[in-house]
Design a binder for these strands. Structure first.
Lengths: 128, 128
DNA sequence: GTAAACGGTGGAGTGCACTCCAGGGTCAAG
DNA sequence: CTTGACCCTGGAGTGCACTCCACCGTTTAC
């Protein structure tokens, strides 16, 4: 598929896709006329990129992950290790998010009294 | 406390703190000599800011949340609503992260067969 | 054959979140 | 009274992640 179709299907701008290609986040080969040609894989891959990005991973990190995937010896064991590693990163983020959530949940619960300065009562105890 | 101490205690640079103050992320009053004076609350608040930031919230969003907290009518009901709202945002992020995690966990599990192109097998089915 | 739709490149510009000066005032210790 | 640690402001610069633009070639439809 060419860049226009990928743009529509991924919801990313053409410029963004070209930028991603330049930074190694997505691959393409070129038609004889010089047009980029993307595989069908590009669509879910870009969706993954967006999700990971929204969750606070930089494009560099995501690109590194993609490169590792591509370069990994194609053995189940090696790939399992790779994914386990990423899993740990995601789990760490989830834990952070959980503690943030907890802090908020405490406040949202049945009318807890609040001091004149909400911050004091909210974050004065255990720092998040 | 002055900016140097807050910098040490929060792990943020003086410049970053001054920048945060300029954008309304943290408040201070001034000593007669013009020095910024921060309350003890600033330390846990800045820790919260950093955590939220790492999790993909922009400084503008965090500042808005802080402002809402400060401006909220000091009634338990209003604040509960405020926190419940933030809670929903955090929960949405957790859900995204969970689906990312699931995708990774599937791969990391006992040797699942992989096609020549790992991406196809990883993301070819349901886009994340 | 020409117009519209699509593609290419290079480079400038944008917004965010800082970082790094330069130039200068404040304050406690020696 | 000077030295050093600390603070101020304003402005320039940086890295990331794009976005916009001008100018040009290609392909498709009429």
């Amino acid at each position: 598929m060419r860049i226009g179709e990928l743009s529509e299907r991924s919801g990313l701008s053409r410029d963004a896709i070209r930028f991603y290609e330049k930074t190694g986040l997505v691959e393409s080969h070129r038609s004889p006329n010089g047009y980029r040609e993307f595989g069908a894989d590009a669509v879910p891959w870009l969706a993954y990129v967006r999700t990971a990005q929204r969750l606070g991973f930089s494009l560099a990190e995501i690109a590194a992950h993609g490169a590792e995937l591509r370069e990994a010896p194609d053995s189940a064991a090696a790939l399992s290790a790779l994914f386990a590693e990423k899993l740990a990163v995601v789990d760490a983020k989830m834990a952070e998010l959980a503690s943030l959530r907890e802090e908020l949940a405490e406040r949202a619960g049945a009318g807890c009294p609040l001091s004149p300065d909400p911050l004091r009562s909210t974050f004065g105890g255990r720092p998040i």
